[in-house]
Amino acid sequence: MAPRGSPIVKICGLSTEDTLDAALDAGAERVGFVFFPRSPRHLALARAAALAARARGRAAIVALTVDADDAALGEIVAAVAPDMLQLHGREAPERAAAVRARFGRPVIKALGVSTAAEVAGAAAYRGSVDEILFDAKPPEGSALPGGNGVSFDWRLLAALDLPVPFMLSGGLGPCNVGEALRVTRAPAVDVSSGVETAPGVKSPELIAAFVGAARGATPPP
């Protein structure tokens, strides 16, 4: 558990026991499993269920999907029993609200942003989701909506007044998460590619370093 005043840390795209254990041992409050076949981090349901069982009670389990329909979400919920659902596609506020109502889980909505207007657009999700995750817009031609290792101008969040809690993602790693937290005062951070040695290959050492760096960040007075 994070010390008082420290950000919540989520390690996303986990796929092996040793990297999951590294996240849990380091004290990450959330662990994320990806259900998107085009991603190098995609998991089969049986594999995700086994990892979720290993993590249950030690961290919140987050299932990440991209424009999934109710049938696919139902299979994930039945097999994995996630604590939270992360919607990382083009889901509108109405769709996000419907998912939250149907499956009875808190919903995180990821938004790719690069401008102040896009950040302000998050207000449309008030009442529909439990958290907003601000991510960098994917590079032109990218097949993935997230996990691309690119960041955005953190100053866009410096004076953010949002009616729901938010998380910061996009291009974060052990070397820059402290500065990102100082600029944004984000209450939570999310990392995937920033703790990998190759796409989809997590490093236990980088995971531990990321959590440690996040814990050591001190926001400005």
Rank of each mutant, 00 (worst) to 15 (best):
A101D: 11
G112I: 01
K10D: 05
K137A: 09
A53L: 13
G112S: 07
A124C: 15
D21N: 10
R95C: 10
R41L: 01
S39K: 00
A97N: 10
R90E: 12
V107E: 04
G141V: 15
C12A: 05
V66I: 14
A136C: 11
R54H: 05
T65E: 03
R95Q: 09
G57M: 14
S39A: 05
G127Q: 13
F35V: 11
D18L: 13
V77A: 03
D21M: 07
A53R: 13
A79D: 07
A117P: 10
R102E: 02
A92R: 14
K10I: 03
G57N: 15
R126S: 11
E118A: 12
R90T: 14
I108L: 14
A52W: 00
S114A: 08
E91A: 00
S114Q: 11
D67N: 09
Y125A: 13
I11L: 14
T115Y: 08
S6M: 12
A50V: 08
P139V: 13
L20A: 01
E29P: 12
P7T: 08
E29C: 14
G104L: 04
S15P: 08
I61K: 01
A122T: 15
A123M: 11
A23S: 06
R58M: 07
A79L: 04
I61W: 00
E75I: 07
R102G: 06
A46P: 06
A78F: 06
A49R: 04
D67S: 07
A46M: 10
E94G: 12
G127F: 12
G89H: 07
H88V: 03
A23I: 06
F36H: 10
V34F: 01
D130A: 15
K137C: 07
D70E: 09
I76K: 01
K109H: 03
P138T: 08
K109D: 01
L73E: 05
D83E: 03
A123T: 13
P93T: 13
Y125R: 09
I76S: 02
L14D: 08
A68C: 03
L51I: 02
R56V: 01
A110M: 14
F33V: 07
G127S: 15
G13D: 04
F103L: 09
P82M: 03
D67M: 04
E94H: 06
P37I: 05
P40V: 04
F134V: 06
P7S: 03
G74T: 03
L45Q: 03
L51C: 02
I8Y: 08
H88P: 04
V113I: 13
A81V: 10
P106I: 06
C12S: 06
H42C: 11
V113H: 10
D21E: 12
D18K: 11
E94W: 15
P138E: 07
S142V: 11
A52V: 00
S39I: 05
L85F: 02
V9W: 08
P37V: 04
E17P: 15
V99D: 03
G13A: 06
S39V: 00
A78E: 06
V77Q: 01
G32E: 00
P37N: 07
Q86Y: 04
R90K: 15
G141F: 13
L85I: 00
A48P: 00
D67R: 09
P7N: 07
E75N: 05
A71W: 13
D67G: 09
I11K: 05
L43N: 02
R100A: 09
R58K: 11
A55F: 02
D21Q: 10
A110I: 03
I132E: 08
Y125V: 11
V119R: 02
D18Y: 10
V31S: 02
D130Y: 10
R105Q: 00
